[in-house]
Protein backbone atom coordinates (compact mmCIF):
# COMPACT_ATOMS: atom_id res chain seq x y z
CA UNK A 1 0.00 0.00 0.00
CA UNK A 2 1.45 3.35 -0.91
CA UNK A 3 1.49 6.27 1.45
CA UNK A 4 -1.57 8.13 0.20
CA UNK A 5 -3.90 5.13 0.27
CA UNK A 6 -2.56 4.16 3.67
CA UNK A 7 -3.26 7.67 4.86
CA UNK A 8 -6.80 7.44 3.57
CA UNK A 9 -7.34 4.12 5.29
CA UNK A 10 -6.07 5.47 8.56
CA UNK A 11 -8.20 8.58 8.15
CA UNK A 12 -11.24 6.34 7.91
CA UNK A 13 -10.31 4.58 11.15
CA UNK A 14 -9.40 7.78 12.94
CA UNK A 15 -11.64 10.57 11.68
CA UNK A 16 -10.27 13.14 14.10
CA UNK A 17 -6.64 12.53 13.25
CA UNK A 18 -4.48 15.28 11.83
CA UNK A 19 -1.86 14.20 9.31
CA UNK A 20 1.58 15.77 9.40
CA UNK A 21 3.94 15.83 6.48
CA UNK A 22 6.69 13.33 7.01
CA UNK A 23 8.73 12.10 4.06
CA UNK A 24 9.34 8.72 5.66
CA UNK A 25 6.06 7.58 7.16
CA UNK A 26 2.41 8.42 7.29
CA UNK A 27 2.16 10.43 10.47
CA UNK A 28 -1.15 10.76 12.26
CA UNK A 29 -1.71 12.90 15.34
CA UNK A 30 -4.69 11.61 17.26
CA UNK A 31 -6.46 13.25 20.18
CA UNK A 32 -5.46 11.77 23.52
CA UNK A 33 -8.91 10.47 24.36
CA UNK A 34 -9.18 8.51 21.10
CA UNK A 35 -5.72 7.00 21.25
CA UNK A 36 -6.61 3.59 22.60
CA UNK A 37 -9.54 3.15 20.28
CA UNK A 38 -7.53 4.18 17.20
CA UNK A 39 -4.65 1.94 18.15
CA UNK A 40 -6.95 -1.02 18.55
CA UNK A 41 -8.59 -0.30 15.23
CA UNK A 42 -5.24 -0.02 13.47
CA UNK A 43 -4.19 -3.40 14.79
CA UNK A 44 -7.43 -5.23 14.16
CA UNK A 45 -8.41 -3.76 10.80
CA UNK A 46 -7.66 -6.20 8.02
CA UNK A 47 -6.40 -3.45 5.73
CA UNK A 48 -3.88 -2.03 8.16
CA UNK A 49 -2.90 -4.92 10.51
CA UNK A 50 -0.34 -2.97 12.49
CA UNK A 51 0.68 -5.85 14.73
CA UNK A 52 4.27 -4.85 15.49
CA UNK A 53 4.92 -1.86 17.72
CA UNK A 54 8.56 -1.40 16.86
CA UNK A 55 9.15 1.77 18.82
CA UNK A 56 7.28 3.80 21.35
CA UNK A 57 8.83 6.84 22.88
CA UNK A 58 8.04 10.17 24.38
CA UNK A 59 9.32 13.55 23.33
CA UNK A 60 9.21 16.91 25.02
CA UNK A 61 8.66 19.27 22.13
CA UNK A 62 7.81 22.94 22.42
CA UNK A 63 6.55 22.52 25.93
CA UNK A 64 4.32 19.64 25.03
CA UNK A 65 4.74 16.02 26.10
CA UNK A 66 4.07 13.72 23.20
CA UNK A 67 4.17 9.99 22.76
CA UNK A 68 5.28 8.63 19.40
CA UNK A 69 4.31 5.14 18.23
CA UNK A 70 6.14 3.58 15.31
CA UNK A 71 3.86 0.88 13.99
CA UNK A 72 4.64 -1.73 11.43
CA UNK A 73 2.67 -4.49 9.84
CA UNK A 74 4.54 -7.76 9.56
CA UNK A 75 2.13 -9.22 7.03
CA UNK A 76 1.45 -6.20 4.81
CA UNK A 77 4.86 -4.53 5.18
CA UNK A 78 3.84 -0.97 5.73
CA UNK A 79 4.49 1.40 8.55
CA UNK A 80 3.00 4.46 10.13
CA UNK A 81 3.64 6.85 12.98
CA UNK A 82 1.04 7.64 15.56
CA UNK A 83 1.35 10.63 17.85
CA UNK A 84 -0.61 11.77 20.82
CA UNK A 85 0.12 14.57 23.23
CA UNK A 86 -0.69 14.67 26.88
CA UNK A 87 -2.93 17.51 27.98
CA UNK A 88 -0.69 19.16 30.56
CA UNK A 89 2.79 18.77 31.93
CA UNK A 90 2.12 18.49 35.64
CA UNK A 91 -0.28 15.60 35.41
CA UNK A 92 0.42 14.09 32.02
CA UNK A 93 -1.90 11.17 31.38
CA UNK A 94 -2.46 8.98 28.32
CA UNK A 95 -4.15 5.66 27.75
CA UNK A 96 -2.03 2.58 27.75
CA UNK A 97 -1.73 0.39 24.67
CA UNK A 98 -0.08 -2.47 26.55
CA UNK A 99 -3.21 -4.58 26.15
CA UNK A 100 -2.86 -4.24 22.36
CA UNK A 101 0.90 -4.72 22.01
CA UNK A 102 2.67 -6.47 24.87
CA UNK A 103 5.86 -4.63 24.04
CA UNK A 104 4.21 -1.37 25.07
CA UNK A 105 4.13 -2.36 28.72
CA UNK A 106 7.82 -1.76 29.18
CA UNK A 107 8.14 1.06 26.67
CA UNK A 108 5.51 2.85 28.70
CA UNK A 109 7.29 2.18 31.95
CA UNK A 110 10.40 3.69 30.43
CA UNK A 111 8.48 6.73 29.22
CA UNK A 112 6.97 7.17 32.67
CA UNK A 113 10.39 6.84 34.20
CA UNK A 114 12.15 9.36 32.00
CA UNK A 115 9.38 11.74 30.90
CA UNK A 116 6.74 11.38 33.54
CA UNK A 117 3.78 10.53 31.34
CA UNK A 118 1.42 8.34 33.32
CA UNK A 119 -0.51 5.67 31.44
CA UNK A 120 -3.95 4.73 32.66
CA UNK A 121 -4.88 1.04 32.94
CA UNK A 122 -1.23 0.05 32.80
CA UNK A 123 -0.68 -3.13 34.86
CA UNK A 124 2.51 -2.03 36.60
CA UNK A 125 3.24 1.68 36.46
CA UNK A 126 6.59 1.96 38.23
CA UNK A 127 9.94 3.44 37.41
CA UNK A 128 12.04 1.11 35.28
CA UNK A 129 15.60 2.40 35.23
CA UNK A 130 15.88 4.98 37.96
CA UNK A 131 15.46 4.32 41.66
CA UNK A 132 11.98 4.63 43.05
CA UNK A 133 12.67 7.76 45.08
CA UNK A 134 14.22 9.67 42.19
CA UNK A 135 12.89 13.20 41.90
CA UNK A 136 11.98 14.59 38.52
CA UNK A 137 11.93 13.21 35.01
CA UNK A 138 15.31 13.50 33.27
CA UNK A 139 14.27 13.65 29.64
CA UNK A 140 12.06 16.68 30.15
CA UNK A 141 13.64 19.86 28.87
CA UNK A 142 13.05 21.68 32.14
CA UNK A 143 14.75 19.01 34.20
CA UNK A 144 17.55 20.31 36.35
CA UNK A 145 19.75 17.83 38.15
CA UNK A 146 20.92 19.55 41.30
CA UNK A 147 23.17 16.70 42.30
CA UNK A 148 25.15 16.10 39.15
CA UNK A 149 25.18 19.42 37.38
CA UNK A 150 26.64 19.01 33.93
CA UNK A 151 26.81 22.11 31.82
CA UNK A 152 27.93 22.17 28.27
Amino acid sequence: MDQTTLQQTIAKLAPNAVFNTNPQFVEAVVPANELHQVAKALKDNSETQFDFLCNQTGIDQKGELKVVYHLRSTSLNHACVLKASASNREDAILDTVSDIWAAAEFFEREIFDLLGIRFTNHPDMRRLFLEDDFQGFPLRKDFVDNVNIIEF
Binding site: C54, N55, F106
Partner: peptide
Amino acid sequence: ELGVYAVSTGEKFPDRMRFRTPNFSNLFI
Protein backbone atom coordinates in the same frame (compact mmCIF):
# COMPACT_ATOMS: atom_id res chain seq x y z
CA GLU B 1 16.41 -4.49 15.12
CA LEU B 2 18.04 -1.29 16.29
CA GLY B 3 15.92 1.75 15.57
CA VAL B 4 17.25 5.26 15.86
CA TYR B 5 14.67 8.01 16.10
CA ALA B 6 15.92 11.56 15.95
CA VAL B 7 14.00 14.80 16.29
CA SER B 8 15.94 17.75 14.97
CA THR B 9 15.16 21.42 15.31
CA GLY B 10 17.87 22.40 12.89
CA GLU B 11 20.49 22.83 15.59
CA LYS B 12 23.82 21.01 15.77
CA PHE B 13 22.49 18.97 18.70
CA PRO B 14 19.46 16.73 18.26
CA ASP B 15 16.38 17.76 20.16
CA ARG B 16 15.60 14.17 21.04
CA MET B 17 17.49 11.02 20.21
CA ARG B 18 15.87 7.72 20.89
CA PHE B 19 17.40 4.29 20.49
CA ARG B 20 15.01 1.41 20.14
CA THR B 21 17.44 -1.24 21.21
CA PRO B 22 16.78 -4.90 20.44
CA ASN B 23 17.66 -6.21 23.87
CA PHE B 24 15.22 -3.95 25.65
CA SER B 25 12.32 -5.60 23.89
CA ASN B 26 13.85 -9.05 23.97
CA LEU B 27 14.31 -9.08 27.73
CA PHE B 28 10.78 -8.70 28.96
CA ILE B 29 9.35 -11.85 27.47
